[in-house]
């Protein structure tokens, strides 16, 4: 079994500008080399998944989840003990119980 054939005339390959936009959306800093490689590989991936366009899905209900069930509801009760200092041991910059980030200007 192989996936259906690619149709090269429909390739939707990405360019560097698009990859930069995506990297910004995803908050990823890439080096120049990484950009070059990402453009090539992401293009391949996008072209690969583009074969989905060949599937006939008229009227098909999108499947968001493998479980055909409804959300279970929790009783409104305080059940969590917060161990702030223990949790904050994983944070590199903490002051006076706050997590620190470079100053946010609003």
């Amino acid at each position: 079994m192989r996936p259906r054939e690619f149709r090269p005339e429909q390739l939707v390959s990405l360019d560097k500008q698009q990859v930069q936009h995506i990297a910004m959306l995803a908050r990823l800093k890439l080096t120049d080399d990484e950009y070059a490689e990402s453009v090539a590989k992401l293009s391949k991936i996008v072209d690969f998944v583009d074969q989905l366009s060949q599937a006939d899905t008229d009227g098909v209900v999108p499947m968001a989840h493998p479980l055909d069930a409804a959300q279970r509801l929790r009783l409104d009760a305080v059940t969590e003990d917060v161990e702030r200092d223990r949790y904050q041991q994983n944070a590199e910059a903490v002051s006076d119980g706050h997590y620190l980030v470079p100053k946010v200007i609003e």
């Binding site: 990859v19 990823l28 490689e37």
Partner: peptide, 16 residues
């Protein structure tokens, strides 16, 4: 790493 970044970017792209 590279593969994780690639998948994150693929995901951001297909949802954008």
């Amino acid at each position: 790493g590279d593969e994780v970044k690639r998948r994150i970017m693929t995901g951001a792209y297909v949802l954008s």
